[in-house]
Design a protein around this nucleic acid. Structure first.
Lengths: 227, 227
DNA sequence: CTTGACGAGTGTACGCCGTACACCTATGGT
DNA sequence: ACCATAGGTGTACGGCGTACACTCGTCAAG
């Protein structure tokens, strides 16, 4: 065994990929707030400043993590039915974001989109164009897919935790929300606890929009904005 | 002038409201990342620890800021046309979030919804119910309004900054995105720069969903999930 | 074989952050 | 006249990102 080999087995040299992988794993395990350069270095058995030989700073680390995660999304399938293609891809993206719950917030916090995100959006737009949507319609459709009309995410309804019986005063103050919660509860089937079936909600919205898009396409919709 | 009055004019005593107002103003002016307890105290002419007599910690400060912002949203109008009522309210919420660009991210970062957010969601659900949507449909509709199907926000397309001519290599790598950008550019009318008309995009999505909801309502849609 | 450049990892230090804790001080009720 | 209390202060601690100067192992050129 040469000294080289001894050294190699003793300590695999760091590189950008190993740093990014460890960062993603650490964020998955302990949450994005607990991800610090110091903790990450510790995890890698290295002094904090060593990381800076592989990423310029923490922002660039986050960029790299985003690209790593977005890279996990399945490539677009091919097929004649554009709705099927888009639907499958988006459900793949959803699975990835569920695996890395911190990712959505980090992606949205980036000042500019990273290359992997751009590539994802580009190929998504390509699927719409291939499906026969005009560039005009595709443009608005892409915006629609990214919108949160309430400004808040859907997870607000998650009343996770041990919970116990729901606060009765809460039902009095927010009667409609209480009603919705009740609906979700005795809705039966796949949801065991009081929570709602997020997967169902997701697909409900997705299909509603996809059908809306298809209708617009068939009608030859165009953004006829009178200035 | 009694000594009381002299003291009062010399220094208005701090209170929770003044702290929250100052925090919102500071976040508006310098961004949420630049909002620290120390900077905020400085702005109020007070030592950092003084703030802790009025808010328990920074998390509670952020909660208070969220409630202050959500409180700016117009109360629901009344009227026979539920789509009109909902539309107006959501556009009001949008105006508020545009005034406080940091707010959406802060709201989503809260672990649980604050009372003001709950009240907002509750009255929104009430508008749907009053409009004749079933509790079941209302439930799914509320989810749909909060979804971001791509996981990313719409602002990704903002190529703000001085920009200059767009990178030609970028067009080669991301042809579809380039096409969309071109569409937005010569789209004319209200948008002067290369950017798109976000207001138009927002209303496009909103109306697409509202029409979809109305169709489901007319058809007596119900979530007939076969277990 | 020597040398010297270079890239990876180290150690120290600085300024910022949130906030625990003990202290002061003016106010207002008894 | 007293003192409890609420609001503001000062000091201090541990954690953060990272600038900067360093050491040390590797390897190509002389």
């Amino acid at each position: 065994m040469t000294p080289q080999e001894a050294t190699r087995t003793q300590r695999i040299p760091l590189n950008r990929d190993r740093v990014l992988r460890a960062a993603v794993a650490l964020a998955d395990a302990t949450g994005i707030d607990a991800l610090s350069m110091r903790r990450l270095a510790q995890e890698l058995g290295v002094v904090p400043m060593a990381l800076y030989k592989h990423v310029a700073n923490k922002e660039e680390l986050l960029d790299g993590m985003v690209d790593a995660v977005v890279g996990e999304i399945d490539p677009p399938a091919s097929g004649p039915d554009w709705q099927r293609v888009v639907r499958g891809r988006i459900l793949s993206a959803r699975r990835v974001l569920l695996r890395h719950p911190w990712a959505a917030r980090v992606i949205e916090s980036r000042t500019g989109p990273t290359p992997a995100v751009l590539a994802y959006l580009d190929s998504m737009a390509g699927s719409f164009r291939d499906g026969g949507l005009s560039a005009d319609l595709t443009h608005h459709v892409m915006h629609a897919m990214g919108s949160r009309l309430l400004g808040f995410s859907q997870e607000l309804f998650d009343t996770s935790g041990p919970s116990g019986p729901p606060d009765p005063g809460l039902a009095a103050r927010y009667p409609y929300i209480a009603e919705l919660a009740a609906t979700a509860a005795h809705d039966g089937g796949s949801t065991v606890g009081g929570g709602c079936d997020d997967q169902f909600e997701f697909e409900f919205t997705l299909d509603l929009l996809l059908d809306g898009f298809e209708n617009l396409r068939r009608q030859g919709w165009t953004s006829a904005r009178k200035a």
